[in-house]
């Protein structure tokens, strides 16, 4: 036991171009694994491949993703839809573009709840308000009745997180969730995610290009470069004894402008 998810030799390509080139990693229960890499390194494609929500032009060439004993890549679409959202949830860089602009925040969270848990409307409403409280929104009633464009970027990211956590997933995949946010908001969201992880007890796959964030939250870091994981290390160790030249580059950039 111990491993919540195990990825083995995953390969994804766009046409003939490999985007993810044979990577393997595991995430334990309650662990935060950071996938660090720059644009084009294949980190987002990896995240999307885990539950097969890749764009149509991408193809999973080979590999397996074992989640609680089941290979997600071999699963039928209906079986996978069960896992998606319920056991494995996502948050993304631009939450506003994943929220539907014509529905209120409340109705969208309720939809997420009803979809997976078959509850009554009153129940779902109560649960939605509770979730908004959970992500530390001060006036849940007001936010419940708002539309996405009426809220700030940080607020939308909180809302999106609340929706993702509606079914108490075992794994939260966060793809650069703070990159589009202001620095002060970024540190709030990061703190929120760590608080939630503590109270709800989920594992997290956190994707970022910024080692400063990795330093704050990671138990372990996998450094991705050109579709491959080039280095995997526990947290203090990565900074203390980087092996691969790309890790060294990332650390140098972080030392220069990633931290004060």
């Amino acid at each position: 036991m111990g491993h919540l998810i195990e990825v083995n030799d995953l390969r994804v390509s766009f046409g003939a171009t490999p985007a993810v080139d044979g990577i393997s990693f595991q995430i334990r229960e309650n662990e935060v694994l950071v996938l660090a890499g720059e644009s084009g390194s294949g980190k987002t494609v990896t995240a999307l491949a885990l539950t097969r929500i890749l764009p149509a032009s991408a193809r999973i060439v080979s590999g397996s993703v074992t989640f609680r004993g089941q290979d997600l890549l071999a699963l039928k679409e209906e079986g996978l839809a069960q896992t998606r959202g319920r056991d494995i949830a996502y948050i993304f860089q631009e939450p506003a573009s994943f929220l539907n602009p014509v529905f209120t925040i409340g109705s969208q969270i309720m939809e997420a709840i009803i979809l997976h848990q078959a509850r009554t409307k009153q129940d779902a409403r109560k649960e939605a308000l509770a979730l908004l409280g959970l992500v530390q929104i001060k006036e849940p009633e007001r936010v419940f009745a708002s539309y996405p464009h009426q809220l700030s970027g940080g607020m939308n990211q909180r809302v999106f997180t609340a929706m993702s956590l509606a079914c108490r997933p075992k794994l939260l995949i966060a793809d650069e969730p703070t990159t589009a946010l202001d620095v002060t908001v970024e540190s709030q969201i990061v703190k929120l995610l760590m608080d939630l992880k503590k109270t709800l007890g989920f594992s997290m796959l956190f994707i970022t290009h910024n080692l400063a964030l990795a330093k704050k939250i990671a138990d372990r870091v996998c450094v991705m470069y050109r579709g491959k994981i080039v280095e995997e290390a526990g947290m203090p160790a990565l900074f203390a004894r980087p092996q691969h030249f790309h890790t060294k580059e990332l650390i140098a950039a972080y030392e220069k402008i990633g931290k004060l």
Partner: peptide, 10 residues
């Protein structure tokens, strides 16, 4: 831009 590119640009 990516952090390593940011450092170069700077």
């Amino acid at each position: 831009l990516d952090l390593t590119i940011q450092a170069q640009m700077l």
